[in-house]
Write a protein that binds this DNA or RNA. Structure first.
Lengths: 234, 234
DNA sequence: CAGGAAATTGACGATTTTGTGACAGGTCAC
DNA sequence: GTGACCTGTCACAAAATCGTCAATTTCCTG
């Protein structure tokens, strides 16, 4: 959903306007005023998407697009080009150059956001959709259902993701920091204790269906999901 | 990956050439030499994809595209347009009209096949004409009718397509974005919340005939049609 | 066994997501 | 035209979920 976007636009007012709108939509925006700067930033930061004005001082947008498509590392980064009404040959050239979409100025912020979303959606890799079964517990990402045997288990979104991660990485201890990275996303700023609370909620949801010791606490390290019972001392 | 493809092309030699190549790639090809014929065939056969030459005698390709997009039954059928080099304004107009892709003559057979594959991949298999029955609810695409047992259910076109898609892909959770792609078509830009509204209308239409929990909300993910209850009461 | 760090727990306000009713345009058959 | 749909969007209401805190409890260490 949120993405790193490089905005290449020489007109400061328009740049500001677009950046503000994208920011409001939850995207992280990096700006460049000319193609050379843009090229450098792309190499360094590898953004998720490039918003490229066609009319630029110095190197043209079309040339930048060509170079990005020529470089192995930047080849797959989606490009949406911004064109003024009437520059039809540019649009076509841009699409032939490998732009993924174009949008004609003036455009509504909403349309821009929608197009970005659509392009990103097409590129997004399909998440693992395979059902996971482990010790009588089954979780199916496709149907978004969890069941202990026959009995369904109701979970909130975060609990669901947490359980999904734990079930796909069982028998292993995960620190709170790791869980925050994997389940919440590494850009989120939340307390580590929050993990505890969600683990507790998960346990509470699993307990009435007879899966008590499934999630084990490893004092000082983190949590572990294990089909094996937590051993005292062997 | 075999698909039913309608080829609209007035030049017999080119028509033959393309048809041969597509046939070799495992596709089933139906041909039309003009837009009027094409329109009729689309209505009858509902192909998986339309390959549309832009330069046609009589009704232009662009007009045909517009009509296909206007009819709710054919709205989501992907269109790839064939253009001659230099017809730049046509390409732009075509994409604005809702074509999914374009390809410039002359093109290599391999490129054509690749583009077709790409466009088809973006879309789940086109729903069939077969009636669907699920949990006492029956939907017949041919007659455009929905009934709960004996009682008929009245739906608007969008609601119908939405229900049709959900019934042909039951149990699975669909995000709003996916539903927009599949039901509205991925060239349409509408708010995601629009899906909510239509789901609500669909629920409202289904409720008086005793199909309450059929469409379930999966918080944070989307919607799911399921014969099974969302949660098991104690 | 005491001290203290680490983890559990219950509560709660804030935030996010979804449900709902209303409405302004647009289309189409008449 | 014109009246009966249909649609997409909005604003607001209702729900569900989230993150945090402080009070406890648990568990190790010495």
């Amino acid at each position: 959903m949120a993405a790193n976007i490089l905005l290449v636009e020489d007109e400061p007012a328009i740049q500001e306007l677009i950046a503000a709108n994208l920011g409001r939509a939850g995207h992280h925006v990096v700006r460049a005023g000319d193609a050379e700067t843009a090229q450098r930033i792309v190499r360094e930061a590898l953004p998720d998407l490039v918003l490229l004005d066609w009319m630029l001082p110095g190197m043209s947008g079309i040339e930048l697009a060509r170079r990005l498509r020529a470089d192995e590392r930047t080849r797959t980064i989606p490009i949406i080009m911004l064109t003024a009404r009437g520059e039809e040959q540019d649009k076509v050239a841009g699409l032939e150059m490998g732009a993924d979409d174009y949008i004609t100025k003036p455009f509504s912020p909403r349309e821009l956001v929608a197009r970005i979303k659509a392009v990103l959606r097409r590129r997004a890799p399909q998440a693992t959709e395979d059902p996971v079964v482990l010790g009588g517990l089954s979780l199916d990402p496709a149907t978004h259902r969890v069941a202990a045997g026959e009995r369904p288990v109701t979970l909130g979104p975060t609990e669901f993701r947490l359980l999904h991660f734990l079930m796909t990485h069982p028998e292993r201890v995960h620190s709170r920091a790791q869980l925050l990275d994997q389940v919440w996303g590494d850009h989120v700023f939340v307390e580590e204790r929050t993990v505890d609370v969600h683990v507790r909620r998960l346990r509470a949801a699993l307990e009435p269906v007879g899966h008590d010791g499934l999630i084990q606490t490893v004092r000082g390290s983190g949590y572990r999901l294990s089909a094996q019972p937590a051993v005292a001392g062997v």
